[in-house]
Design a protein around this nucleic acid. Sequence first.
DNA 1: GTGAAAGCGCTAACAG
DNA 2: CTGTTAGCGCTTTCAC
Lengths: 347, 347
Amino acid sequence: MARSDQRNGGQLPVTPPTLADVAERAGVSRQTVSNAVNNPDLLRPDTLERVRQTIAELGYSPNRAARNLRTRTSSLIGLRFAPAQEGTANAAMDRFVHSLVEASEEVGYHVLLFPGDDEDPVVGYDNLLRSTAVDAFVVTDTYLGNPQAAWLSQQRAPFVAFGRPWDDDEARHPWVDVDGAAGIRLATQHLIDRGHTRIAWIGWRKDSPIGEDRRSGWTQTMHDNGLSTTGLASRVEDVVHSGAEAAAVLLDSARPTAFVCASDTLAMGVLHTLWIRQLAPGTDVAVVGFDDSQVAQVFPVGLTSVRQPLEDVAVEIVKALRALLSHQPVTERGVLLEPTLAIRESS
Amino acid sequence: MARSDQRNGGQLPVTPPTLADVAERAGVSRQTVSNAVNNPDLLRPDTLERVRQTIAELGYSPNRAARNLRTRTSSLIGLRFAPAQEGTANAAMDRFVHSLVEASEEVGYHVLLFPGDDEDPVVGYDNLLRSTAVDAFVVTDTYLGNPQAAWLSQQRAPFVAFGRPWDDDEARHPWVDVDGAAGIRLATQHLIDRGHTRIAWIGWRKDSPIGEDRRSGWTQTMHDNGLSTTGLASRVEDVVHSGAEAAAVLLDSARPTAFVCASDTLAMGVLHTLWIRQLAPGTDVAVVGFDDSQVAQVFPVGLTSVRQPLEDVAVEIVKALRALLSHQPVTERGVLLEPTLAIRESS
DNA sequence: GTGAAAGCGCTAACAG
DNA sequence: CTGTTAGCGCTTTCAC
């Protein structure tokens, strides 16, 4: 019985048709069918047409495993999927992952998710790498001291980072990042344009290079506009409670009319303090957050927030990935994208 | 040159070691190495030990593609990853995906993400299925009229649904769901226990079976406690604005002292109305949402919310998947899990 | 218990 | 432009 006889109604065949089935049915060799799929230019138009017809009739699709084995590729991109931290507003990961899935699909890749082992952050990468389960990785958590990028580099594993190699001058891997300082400059200038002069900053602790970078956007814009920053800054942990406290302290001491925050989480804290003090956000005191999280969007008084162009980030990452995997000469090590400002009622 | 000679320092070999490399080095046949990996019981303890040692030395890991080709499996679970809708509070997907990744890993599976085509919701599934890229699917959007479940059933494709087959009595596929009505019963009873008697319901339009199910939890608990529901219910779209409007109307007409909402998004609308009217959430009027989203957690006045046990859902789904893929006799078609109530200041 | 042979479905290399 | 040959690395028979 020919393989193609195993089809049954509208259902999928018991065992899907193979290249050989298509070849036999179309009266060509297997290689010709392969070419019709992968190098259509090599076929005469009429042959191509006939083969394509047969492929459609049989519902043929190349077996991934066989192709992967032969080509030593998987068309899979590995991404460690860490959960959004409970109690914080940052759900940027979700948006980014979706963008990455979309962008990958465009060029024939799929995204493979794997969990992170807290004790050994490298074990997940190692397993996938050694079993050649993925072609490359996208590394998202390039925080200070993260060993993954360095480890992957040392293994000569292809990967692109979302995030600059802040602490590592030796890093030679491609990366894509969002210019946080530029985002905060946008936010600060926006507030200045609205007439504010006493604009406070609530950011993270000093050991966060991302936080310091964002902070510099505030400092710079203030100074560029001839405004003082003295006594207007606070560095706290990234939780609502800390943001609220910092806002209370600043309101009592420096009496700012506006707050720029390193995150939406902190901005929520500010809004809480305003609420307690019967101050109207946007009217009495302006507030700007960072990440344009769902919280910013859904909050009754819409929170103005810096929005990362995650869709573009994903596109750039996939672009870099392709260059990496096709061994093209690397033109640029890093790409820095500009965020935008989602303006709402809070400013 | 032997393959195993291609190792170079701590780095990954240029081309990873194969079964043959391990076999040669350990002085056994390839099959024995394969057994050491897949059927260790078949080996004599000393042989097993020697082979394992060699595997460790070489850093050998079976090539996925070859194994997949041979066993006709992929150890991959396909999941269509739809983006969280902007402007709504629901980021449950994020938490669920993470739970699924974790639960899958436990049993040797990985999660493959693919995008959804709005025009043809089936095309993504079809491609992966026909190319045997995944072993099974997890279907999350089992809304009314969703063709995917029926289509996959017809294709005899293995899949488990997160969500009941509300509209389809013919459905015979395994599913896991959360008992939304029970969650709302919990919420309503909680409010009654707090002394409320005029408890309003803000839910979705009637064509949502999920919404009607949740609503029934409210109706039932009210009636069980001898309380009237007349004039206390509203059915609107799932956006903040609608929730705010509905709350305003209800406050004017029925004067409820508490609101139970079908979603955190609607609850945010209620909170907005309370804020405008200078009513204190939790003190003047109680509010309960659904999904325990980040918004509920981060909101200055913590929003009490029904929390779905997504970690358990993932575990149950993986359990069902394994049964499905090992062709075990199916014991139960569906699993219904109980949500919990995350109690915060708003109630 | 261990080893030899075969082949999963595909594509790279070459011959015609 | 098309066909033939070989083999990717693994696991499933089946001998020994």
